[in-house]
Amino acid sequence: MSEQFRLRIVYAKQDRLRWLSHLEVMRAMERLVRRSGLPYVVTQGFNRHMRFAIGPALPVGTAGLNELFDVWLTQYVAPSDAQTALSQAADDIIAIRKVQYVNPDAKGLQATHTINRYLLLVDSAVGALELQSAMDAVIATGHLELPHKKSTRSFDLSQTVAESPVVLPTVDADGYLLVSCAIVSSDTGSLRPEQLLACALDEGSRIVSVTRTALESPDTV
C-alpha cells in the first residue's frame, strides 16, 4: 500500500449547527473534505468511500468548540494549505480551527479521546456558592442512577467524572452562571454533563446551554 497521511482537523460545531446529529455532522464533514479538493484516500472494499474517522459523538443541541475528525490523504499537503482549503470549502458556516498530521497508525479518536470537557450556562435560582455545594453533594454520593429508556443506568462517579463540576468565578453577559466539568466517555454509554448538573439544580433553575470545550486523551491530561 502506498504511503498515507493522516490529517487531524479541529473544528467548531456551534450556533445553529449544534442542532445537528452525529450522523449529520459526519456527512457534512465528508462533503466538506470533498469540496476542499484535498487528495483523500478511498477505501478499496465493496462500497468504496473516503477513509475518514470522526471523534466522539455530541448529543443534538450540544455545541462543540474543538471537535475532531481524521481524514487520510494520498499525498502530503502542508497543514496551512489544507486548513485554507478546508476553510474555503466550509464557507462561513463551520470554523476550521486547526489542522495537523498525526501518526497514521494511531488508535482511533473515539478510543483515545475519552476526556470530555464541558462548559454549561446555568440560569440559577440560587447563588454560585449554594449551587457549588449542591453539586459537591451529588459528587459525594459516589454514584448516580438515571432513568434510561424503560430501565435505569448506573454511573460510578469516581470513574465517570474526571473533574468535578465547578462554578466559575465569572458570569456570562446575560448573567448566567458558568459551570465547568470533565466527563469520561465510555463505549457502554456516557454520562451527560447536563444530567449530572440537573441532579443539583432546584426547580427554579435551568440549564441554558451545554458546550463541549475540549476532547482530550487521558495520556495528555
Binding site: R16, L17, W19, L20, R31, V60, G61
Partner: peptide, 16 residues
Amino acid sequence: LLSQVAKPSRYIDHEF
C-alpha cells in the same frame, strides 16, 4: 422549540 422536536436540522437553514 428545537430540543422538543424530531430532526431539528429541518429548521436551521445554513446549508451550503
